[in-house]
Simulated assay, not measured.
Amino acid sequence: MDERATAQPEPGLTLHTPGGRPYRFDPGALCLELLPTGGPGAYARHEVLHGPADLIRWAAASRLPDGLDLTVTEAEVAAARALRDALWSLTADRAHGRASDLAVLEVVNAAAAGPPLIARIAPDGTRAWAPGATGTRLVSTVARDAVDLFTGPYAHRIRECAAHDCLLLFVDTSRPGRRRWCAMENCGNRHKVRAHRGRAREPGP
């Protein structure tokens, strides 16, 4: 059997540079995959969660296993946006060593208190989702993932991309713990190009 045919796709999201070039961004956790959909304040101009279909589309593109049959209402989309905005604040504060806002923590904890999505074993032995998957259960699952992340072993590795003009947030789950960029094919490569040009401009001996 061809192992490439059965390999699981790499986790992460396909984002686009201002010029329209696609690149792969893996923030390292389900809850952080929600952040690029928009956010509070200035991030609102990037909003993509306008209706139920948008939240369903995000779930299908996320690191959640395939096969999720979601039913989503407008109110649940609003709840997802509220959680996302809270996660933006919580993640940025952690990345910059700031204390967490209690009101933000309450939003995350309240969302996590609801019933999550339920996985089960299908008759053929594969993983499947139990019927009744809703936007509320999806929001709870994302919030619980945030609780696990911010109280877990990688909580001290939540970072902002090192590029001066990139605000993407991620958790570094690599073994060496030296990740600096949102993606090497984006900000990492831009840094390498600038460094190379800088060396080329240096005067010789």
Rank of each mutant, 00 (worst) to 15 (best):
55 L>V: 07
155 A>Y: 01
188 G>T: 02
26 D>P: 07
88 W>K: 00
92 A>W: 09
121 I>F: 08
184 M>T: 09
135 G>E: 05
154 Y>I: 06
156 H>D: 15
174 S>N: 10
45 R>T: 12
57 R>Q: 15
85 D>S: 14
28 G>D: 00
24 R>A: 15
202 E>S: 14
13 L>M: 06
45 R>I: 13
102 L>W: 04
191 H>T: 10
122 A>I: 05
134 T>W: 06
192 K>Y: 13
203 P>E: 14
51 G>S: 12
149 L>Y: 03
57 R>Y: 10
94 R>K: 11
155 A>G: 09
76 E>V: 09
33 E>C: 04
193 V>I: 07
139 V>D: 06
28 G>V: 02
180 R>A: 12
117 L>R: 06
161 C>Q: 09
193 V>L: 12
203 P>N: 10
193 V>M: 08
55 L>H: 01
177 G>L: 04
113 A>Y: 03
20 G>M: 12
12 G>L: 01
116 P>E: 07
116 P>T: 00
110 A>S: 13
109 N>S: 08
151 T>Y: 02
148 D>C: 06
95 A>T: 00
59 A>F: 05
20 G>H: 04
80 A>F: 06
100 S>N: 06
204 G>L: 14
73 T>N: 10
199 R>D: 12
137 R>A: 08
30 L>Q: 13
113 A>S: 15
63 R>T: 15
179 R>Q: 04
143 A>M: 11
193 V>K: 10
137 R>H: 01
96 H>K: 04
81 R>E: 05
57 R>T: 15
29 A>D: 13
102 L>N: 03
189 N>T: 14
16 H>Q: 13
87 L>F: 03
87 L>C: 04
19 G>L: 09
116 P>F: 00
21 R>S: 14
115 P>Q: 07
190 R>T: 13
124 D>M: 03
106 E>K: 12
167 L>P: 08
182 C>H: 00
27 P>A: 02
45 R>H: 10
149 L>E: 02
78 A>M: 09
14 T>H: 03
126 T>C: 08
24 R>D: 15
135 G>M: 05
85 D>R: 12
56 I>P: 01
180 R>H: 05
39 G>L: 02
131 P>A: 02
50 H>V: 10
24 R>P: 03
135 G>L: 02
83 L>C: 09
20 G>L: 10
42 A>P: 11
108 V>K: 06
48 V>L: 13
168 L>K: 11
87 L>N: 00
56 I>E: 15
63 R>W: 06
